[in-house]
């Protein structure tokens, strides 16, 4: 894994690699170099499989992070590239021509995070939600509890127990000794 990163480092701006395991590494790249790196990884380094494309909402930094995870089946290596996008603008670059499956991920990101990918096939169509008019639900400023309370009726009588105190009370009522 490291020698691949060394080879890439000469020509591209790579952030500090984070190794989760020997065969799993995360690295931040620049947006304008993403396509070149992905193409090189796919065609030269044998990372032929796009495992996932997902997003993280860094609302405090006003940024979206896209994670492109690619996998080399032969060498059993997984490399994830992170790209930061402006949260206001929320426009990414489509890679559906590198991996056709990316189009599906991009439709999902469009619907769930509101990140659009111009040029990606059917990206503006509904993906899972039907008739959704609110904020994209995976954005962190969308409050799902408040939304569900304002939309769906509650049945009264629902109680919530904190699992720890509840189990302690039912199973070990006199623990620690003399507590009862």
């Amino acid at each position: 894994m490291r020698h691949i990163l060394y080879r890439l480092k000469d020509r591209y701006h790579l952030g500090t690699p984070v190794f989760q395991r020997d065969d799993l590494c995360f690295v931040t790249v620049k947006r304008f170099e993403l396509r070149a790196i992905l193409t090189e990884l796919r065609d030269v380094e044998g990372f032929t499989h796009l495992t996932l494309l997902t997003a993280v909402d860094w609302i405090e930094e006003q940024q979206f992070q896209l994670t492109y995870m690619v996998n080399n089946r032969v060498a059993n290596l997984t490399l994830a590239l992170r790209v930061m996008l402006d949260r206001e603008d929320a426009t990414g670059d489509t890679i559906h021509d590198l991996w056709p499956t990316a189009a599906t991920y991009q439709r999902e990101l469009r619907e769930m995070f509101g990140i659009t990918f111009p040029g990606s096939p059917r990206v503006d169509e509904e993906f899972i939600l039907e008739g959704w008019t609110d904020l994209p639900p995976y954005r962190r400023d969308f409050d799902t509890l408040a939304y569900s309370q304002q939309t769906y009726n509650d049945r009264p009588g629902r109680v919530t127990h904190d699992p720890k105190t509840h189990m302690q009370k039912t199973l070990y009522a006199d623990y620690p000794k003399g507590a009862k």
Partner: peptide, 10 residues
């Protein structure tokens, strides 16, 4: 799913 944005409750 009591706090889910997309599932009904009753």
């Amino acid at each position: 799913y009591w706090d889910s944005y997309n599932t009904i409750k009753r």
